[in-house]
């Protein structure tokens, strides 16, 4: 075993912080869902979900320390998802 106690501290601190942030965000999301905001509910919930995903990706999946290539690849899926959403909705929203 060559991990010192200092290693142990840094090992736990970051993930624990991220974890508490995630739990807090989840709680906010849950609470906000019961407020009568109309269409605002889904917007708030999704924004929180995006923030949570970002926290998870950056701090727990360690994209923070990833190479540029890995960051590009990680965002590729999202870009292509945008192609899919924008072009599919271009049909549905203009059907009339």
């Amino acid at each position: 075993m060559n991990g010192s106690s200092g290693d142990h501290e840094t090992l736990w601190r970051g993930p624990l912080l991220a974890w508490s942030a995630l739990l807090a965000l989840a709680a906010i999301s849950l609470g906000s869902a019961y407020l009568p905001l109309g269409a605002g509910n889904v917007a708030v919930n999704l924004v929180i979900a995006v923030v949570m995903a970002a926290v998870l990706a950056i701090f727990l999946m360690d994209l923070r320390n990833g190479t540029t290539l890995v960051r590009i690849v990680a965002s590729t899926g999202l870009f292509w998802m945008i192609f899919m959403f924008v072009l599919t909705f271009s049909d549905y929203l203009s059907r009339g």
Partner: peptide, 28 residues
């Protein structure tokens, strides 16, 4: 909601596992 908490916590333990592995803390 219970499942949300369970999965977020599992991500925490998974991160710890990876970090422990990198610095060769086998038991952790």
């Amino acid at each position: 909601s219970i499942n949300m908490v369970l999965l977020l916590t599992s991500s925490l333990t998974m991160t710890v596992a990876l970090r422990a592995a990198t610095i060769q803390l086998r038991r952790l």
